[in-house]
Design a protein around this nucleic acid. Structure first.
Length: 480
RNA sequence: GGCGCGGUGGCAGAGUGGUCAUGCAGCGGACUGCAACUCCGUUAACGCCGGUUCGAUUCCGACCCGCGCCUCCA
């Protein structure tokens, strides 16, 4: 039974789909005015693992993740760069897609753009105006009338009256009420804008998500997700807009990822202490980044630091150490996964590794718990490999296949083990060819019982961060 | 001030009313020409104070500390 923590009710709830077997999922995507950072990566990776898992359990997931490609920050940045805003967004969208491919993030089913849905946005605003949930202000902007939506604050658990007295809301003279927010902003002829019944203008920040989600998923859908800082006001405003416009419940479940911190400090645009995905990937293998992001629960705060990334790499290496004993790991269908931890096939009382994995993931996507099941598999696998014999060969192969199949659900263990452990040569001081040559020389020395020379070479390579491992099959090496 | 989250062994990080998380690191042993990998064993934790209970890290209450949101940010 799948359980999901629902921000709306602040508790874990059994998941009940609107339509059996189907999940309509909307996740707030990126406002494309800059490169994606590690906080974006967390949301992307979390929902990537979640959708992969749900699909593995035969849910028909319709995953929509939008791109906000018109917004004040975009216009500001384009002005600063002295370029057309569409050139800026096109470049950033391309960069975002590169980052996603690098992290092995599967594309969503739909990736709507705000500028592609201006008509839907205007339709929704018109409905809101007609129903007095919105009004035209003296400055030509159209604002949402928060006072008319009594449930305002239900997602972020805020009292509307207290929001009114909250001094930090800037009181704009044009607004009836300081809590009101813009649905449409008037634009002059020389500014970016679209024609509308209320004159030329552009959409406000929150309306595009209401319009696009309704357009693609219907008035009511199953799950709405996003980053932690979108909870208020963005998601609260989405609810206000959509539920006022349709008169129906907007989303049944709300999921929010935890914040990413950097060296134990809040990461934010204003503190300018954020790392872009491309910066991070220059230093760490994409799977290390994925593993790091999935090694704590998706709702917990997570701390981006050198130490934690190194630890993540070491954790991932344990999987690859086990897998490198196989020339090729066969594929394994999830329906065929039956192996349990006892090592005894007749023992049906013990839950299989796969059952335990599913149980962990069904519990609000507990990826860390899922990893611990996989580590149990690693231990058994290593033991089987060490005590290699004819009786256990089938189980060994099957276990390796199952491990890899589970890794695939989380988007890891897809690399070639040797390549993963050897690292990428172009960023390293010593080339693979040089290493191979030294290894060959050392093996000759070993054969000649010239152990002093052999140790010299080991030492020399160790200083360059290369570790040698002798085995029956020969010497293999990896970069630390 | 309002709302919310959390404090677990050296670090990271799950979980549970009563023998095990897990990973990294440490220690002892096996393996190895030496190592690495691996395996076996092992050390070590549940912020503080009360309460409920036969028994609480786990439930309840108070307290202390940290963090987030309330303003653009995933």
């Amino acid at each position: 039974m799948l359980k999901i923590y629902n921000t709306l009710h602040r508790k874990k709830q059994e998941f009940r789909p609107i339509e059996p077997g189907k999940i309509q999922l909307y996740v707030c995507g990126i406002t494309v005015y800059d490169y994606c950072h590690i906080g974006h990566a967390r949301v992307l990776v979390a929902f990537d693992a979640i959708t992969r898992y749900l699909r593995s359990q035969n849910w028909d997931v319709n995953y929509v993740r939008n791109i906000t490609d018109i917004d004040d920050k975009i216009l500001q940045r384009a002005t600063d760069n002295n370029e057309n805003y569409t050139d800026l967004t096109a470049r950033m969208i391309e960069a975002m897609h590169e980052d996603e491919r690098a992290l092995d993030i599967l594309p969503p089913n739909h990736e709507p753009r705000a500028t592609g849905h201006i008509g839907d946005i205007l339709d929704m605003i018109e409905t809101l105006v007609d129903n007095h949930y919105a009004y035209t202000a003296s400055n030509g902007d159209i604002y949402y009338r928060v006072k008319r939506f009594p449930e305002y604050g239900k997602l972020s658990n805020k009292n509307p009256d207290e929001l009114l007295s909250g001094a930090r809301v800037d009181s704009d003279d044009a607004k009836e009420d300081p809590r009101d927010f813009a649905l449409w902003k008037a634009a002059t002829a020389d500014q970016v804008g679209w024609e509308s019944p209320w004159g030329r203008g552009r959409p406000g920040w929150h309306i595009e998500c209401s319009a696009m989600s309704t357009c693609l998923l219907g008035d009511t859908f199953d799950i709405h997700g996003g980053g932690p800082d979108l909870l208020f006001p963005h998601h609260e405003n989405e609810i206000a807009q959509s539920e006022a416009a349709t008169g129906k419940t907007f989303s049944h479940y709300w999921m929010h990822a935890g914040a990413v911190r950097v060296d134990n400090e809040k990461m934010s645009k204003s503190l300018n202490n954020f790392f872009t995905i491309r910066e991070v990937l220059e230093k760490y293998h994409p799977e290390v980044v994925r593993y790091f992001l999935l090694s704590s629960h998706y709702r917990s705060p997570i701390n981006y630091s050198e130490d934690n990334l190194i630890e993540a790499r070491q954790g991932l290496e344990r999987f690859y150490f086990a897998l490198q004993n196989f020339a090729e790991v066969p594929a394994c269908a999830l329906s065929e996964m039956t192996l349990g931890g006892s090592g005894d096939d007749d023992d049906n009382k013990e839950a299989s590794y796969y059952q335990r994995f599913v149980e962990a993931m069904d519990d609000d996507f507990n990826t860390r718990e899922a990893f611990s099941v996989m580590y149990d598999m690693v231990r058994e696998l290593n033991t089987l490999v060490r005590d290699d014999n004819a009786q256990t060969q089938v189980r060994t192969q099957t276990l390796a296949a199952e491990l890899k199949a589970l890794g695939e659900i989380l988007g890891i263990l897809k690399a070639n083990p040797a390549e993963f452990l050897q690292g990428s040569a172009d960023t390293e001081a010593i080339s693979s060819a040089e290493i191979d040559a030294l290894v060959a020389e050392r093996n000759q020395a070993k054969q000649d019982k010239q152990y002093q020379r052999s140790d010299e070479i080991r030492q020399q390579l160790a200083e360059q961060g290369v570790v040698l491992e002798d085995s029956r099959e020969g010497t293999r090496w990896r970069r630390e």
